Amino acid sequence: MNELVSDDFIAVLVLDDHQMVIEGVKTLLKSRPNIRVVAEANRGADALQLLVKHPEVRVVLTDLSMPQMSGLEFIRAAREINSKLRIVALSMFYDHASVTDVLSAGGCGYMLKSLGPEELVQAIEQVAAGRTYFSSEVGSMLLQNLELTALRPAPAADDPVPLTVREREVLELISKEYSNHHIAEKLFISERTVETHRKNILTKTNSKSIIGLIRYALRHRLIQ
């Protein structure tokens, strides 16, 4: 079950220097009772003030290319205000460096502005529930880069940490983008147990994100 804010809706802030983009997002979401755009801004500085004014905001959709304050600068500053914010980048373009910069800054997703209403809703719901979300093109590019990295020989001292059979099963399903709910169904265990395994795997592999975990797993041939 997704974690929603009070009153059973996910409060969203949209930041883009083009008002047309903001209006488009609001139009795509206006018929969704579980998601509500509660704040909007055309500048990063204004958006930061709105985050203080609207502490109920759970998800932020932000453009990356903006004057005065870039999307990356905004993400870092917004996370200083509220470390629990789930921030997703919206862009017309994508490349490996841009996506990894967003993740390093504290973002949890990257979507193309050409997305449709169903994808937008799915993305907001997933990140609000604590997961990451990438448009299909972005996800494919990340996996290709991870696979190329995995083909490079690992240093001799970089031996994989031992994982239990169950942890390896969970890891395999995480790599296939299964949600905690679906992993629990697949392995006949509770979602709380899945979350415990997920945290243990991240700790054991010293990974700070799912992307880092998948990179580790590919490098050590823990997943196919």
Rank of each mutant, 00 (worst) to 15 (best):
A105V: 10
M92K: 14
I223Y: 00
N180E: 05
V165N: 08
V194P: 00
A123H: 00
A150D: 08
Q126A: 08
P67E: 08
L187Q: 10
D17M: 09
E56S: 07
A11T: 05
V165E: 14
T193R: 01
E119K: 06
N2E: 12
G116H: 11
R76L: 12
R221L: 07
Q68S: 13
T132D: 08
T193E: 03
V37D: 01
E137V: 10
G107A: 14
M92W: 12
L15I: 10
L142P: 01
L163D: 00
I201Q: 00
K113S: 04
G24I: 05
Y110N: 03
T132N: 07
L171G: 00
T100P: 09
I22F: 03
R32L: 09
L218C: 03
I10S: 02
S175C: 05
I75K: 03
M69V: 13
V57F: 06
D159K: 14
E177V: 15
Q144L: 14
E73P: 12
V99N: 01
P67S: 11
R219L: 08
N34P: 07
S179V: 04
A97P: 13
F9W: 08
L151I: 13
D16N: 07
G130N: 07
R221T: 08
G109F: 02
A129H: 08
R43S: 08
P155I: 06
E73I: 11
Q126V: 06
E23R: 13
S104Y: 11
R36E: 14
F9H: 12
T203V: 09
R86H: 15
K53C: 10
M20Y: 14
G24L: 03
V60Q: 03
V60E: 02
P153T: 09
K53E: 15
H182K: 13
P117I: 09
L143D: 11
A105F: 06
Q144Y: 10
N180M: 04
G106E: 05
L112Y: 04
L146E: 09
V127L: 04
L28H: 12
G130M: 07
V25I: 10
V60M: 04
R166L: 13
Y133C: 00
E167F: 02
L202E: 10
G71L: 04
R36Y: 07
F188S: 13
E185H: 11
A77I: 10
R76D: 15
D8V: 11
Q144H: 12
E73K: 05
L187H: 07
